[in-house]
Design a binder for these strands. Structure first.
Lengths: 213, 213
DNA sequence: GAGAAATTGTGAACAGTGTTTAGTAAATTC
DNA sequence: GAATTTACTAAACACTGTTCACAATTTCTC
């Protein structure tokens, strides 16, 4: 086998890996993670179920691949923030981008921040979670910059950042799982959910804003 | 069949329902929700798998039963707070009780606040979620009382309450899923997780405390 | 008491899951 | 053209939730 053919073969192999991943992504988004079977993925790409195991060790490895791609997507959502020079404005933008990401990609969000399995795998892999750490580093850095111009005086940067992340994560998860919808329907039936969510977020922002030195 | 026997029968039937529920509770806590099978529950109570379906319509109904019990347990955690007269102190107590509940019963917590299925069922049942609403009502009421003595001036009670709930939920979920552990290990490796969590909570408290009129 | 009826429990099966393995068909190398 | 490697798959294994026809037991009626 000459080199040109080997290359083409290799390329085809990579193509099929992508096809599998894309099919999995679509099905996961449609039916959720647990509800999509290897057989369904196989059928979508018109291959035998066993073929998938030639390209991915098991279902977990597919999930992990989507995990990596999910983080890249999140980083994309944060990309536009680089042009905001004011730290607190950037922090606000991060919050809005985070919410947007969560609402537009709820299954990916759950994959990234609400599952335990991929995390365990990642703890043994070391490198792989880098982008996750990097995302949190961005938050830490931004909070620090906010503090340098008088915001959040006297608060530890780490705790402050964890607090903000918890706030955003809780809001997104309550929304995604439907708990916000349920309690919201009973208590604040005037506005729709997105309004309720963003107004809660804005409440948090103005909450934070009042704490300026 | 006379009345005494009918009663004993009925009692036995209730007993078996309880046995199933208790076995399910233990197995769920041990291996998680998805990982425990009807067959495993059946084996634990030494009955045939099919027998379980004589007492519960399906696995969901077992989950819903545990859902109801979970809320009762949460209300128990909140019971001690009735004796705290100062609203803000009571609010702080609620936060600590909530965290305690989540950490001591992580699977139940996930069942109550991180699953979508039981919520859908409940939306069609109406009554069943009462205790969930009641728990949120307690929060609403407490926030309102805090505002009446000068806390959170100028903030809408609903949004404020949602914000607090989101904060607590996010903190608990990040802890339970292990995300706090992962990022925490890299960034704040000095303290253990419970310390990190409670110090983040206290940060939020002092954050809120500074906003007094 | 004896027979009918209703209750209570189960083994076996169905359709589905993730995964493995033995074996086939095709492409590549010699 | 023959040998070997590659790409793929049908079939099976051990699970899952769930159903159903059937058996055992208990209760009711006479």
């Amino acid at each position: 086998m000459d080199m040109g053919v080997a290359e083409r073969k290799e390329r085809h192999k990579e193509d099929l890996k992508r096809e599998i991943l894309d099919a999995a992504k679509v099905l996961f988004a449609e039916k959720g993670l647990e509800a999509t079977s290897i057989r369904a993925i196989a059928e979508k790409i018109e291959y035998s179920p066993a073929t998938i195991y030639l390209y991915y060790k098991d279902k977990n490895e597919i999930v992990h691949a989507l995990h990596r791609e999910g983080f890249k997507l999140l980083v994309d959502y944060f990309q536009v923030l680089n042009h905001i020079s004011h730290p607190f404005e950037r922090l606000k933008g991060m919050g809005r981008a985070y919410i947007q990401f969560a609402l537009q990609n709820p299954d990916t969000y759950k994959l990234l921040f609400n599952m335990e399995e991929p995390l365990e795998h990642v703890a043994n892999c070391f490198e792989e979670w880098d982008e996750g750490d990097r995302a949190f580093d961005i938050l830490l850095q931004t909070v620090k910059e906010c503090q340098s111009i008088g915001y959040f005086p006297g608060f530890a940067t780490e705790q402050m950042s964890f607090m903000i992340w918890s706030m955003m994560h809780g809001l997104c998860m309550l929304r995604i799982t439907g708990h916000l919808a349920h309690v919201g329907a009973a208590k604040a039936n005037l506005m729709d959910l997105d309004q309720l969510m963003s107004s809660t977020f804005e409440t948090f922002v103005s909450f934070a804003e009042k704490l300026k030195r």
